[in-house]
């Protein structure tokens, strides 16, 4: 089972992956650079340095983390959290990033669950083109698998106007305010996952 993280560049996918995996109980890592398969002490902060950056499209070889999830009578279920490259609003000149975007879309199509991250901090107010990416992404995600919009960097959305706007656009139950940095909302995301696992048809 894979929960795939998607979103525009710099939505905070990589930091969310690392911190949420840490929160759920990290079992192992793959992808990214070699040598990160088994994080020892301090492994996560090293990963944060390596994979989290204000420069968009930093992640070209995204990480995937195996975590364990306790869900009722079924006991511990292991789940892969998979990061993908940000989907840009415009065409991409670099072939390497295009390839990574295509690969990310392929992973999205295979997802069991989808987390769609949207940056709601005040300096990331989207252009119409960027909003179109999120709209398309949301519509596609809904067709593929149970999906949830994570309004990330919610701690910076003072007054909550951006989260409100997303709830108006996508429906109140499709949006969850979170913060990859402060771990705000992680419990709710976990609950959502557990609920989906219980609902999933046999």
């Amino acid at each position: 089972m894979e929960a795939v993280l998607v979103g525009r560049p710099n939505a905070g996918k990589s930091l969310f992956l690392i911190n949420f995996a840490d929160y759920l109980g990290l079992r192992g890592l793959e992808g990214g650079a070699a040598g990160h398969r088994r994080p020892r002490g301090g492994g996560l902060s090293e990963l944060r340095r390596k994979f989290v950056s204000p420069v968009p499209n930093r992640v070209r070889e995204p990480l995937a983390a195996t975590v364990s999830l306790s869900a009722g009578p079924a006991g511990g279920i292991s789940l892969v959290l998979r990061d993908t490259v940000g989907i840009p609003a415009h065409g991409v000149p670099e072939g390497e990033i295009r390839r990574a975007v295509a690969q990310g879309l392929a992973q999205l199509l295979q997802a069991t669950f989808i987390f769609h991250l949207i940056d709601v901090s005040p300096h990331a107010v989207p252009t119409p083109a960027e909003e179109a990416v999120d709209r398309e992404l949301h519509l596609l995600a809904q067709q593929i698998a149970p999906s949830l919009i994570l309004a990330n960097k919610a701690e910076a959305d003072l007054g909550g106007s951006r989260v409100r706007r997303l709830k108006e656009l996508y429906g109140p139950t499709s949006v969850l305010p979170v913060s990859a940095l402060t771990r705000l909302g992680f419990r709710d995301v976990k609950h959502w996952l557990v609920e989906q696992l219980a609902l999933e048809p046999p």
Binding site: R98, V101, L109, E136, L139, L140
Partner: peptide
């Protein structure tokens, strides 16, 4: 769709629509 994205023939945002 994925091949066209990779070759640059299709912008990612249009790819999303096609996939849908």
């Amino acid at each position: 769709v994925l091949q066209w994205v990779e070759s640059g023939r299709l912008p990612p945002v249009e790819a999303l629509g096609h996939l849908r």
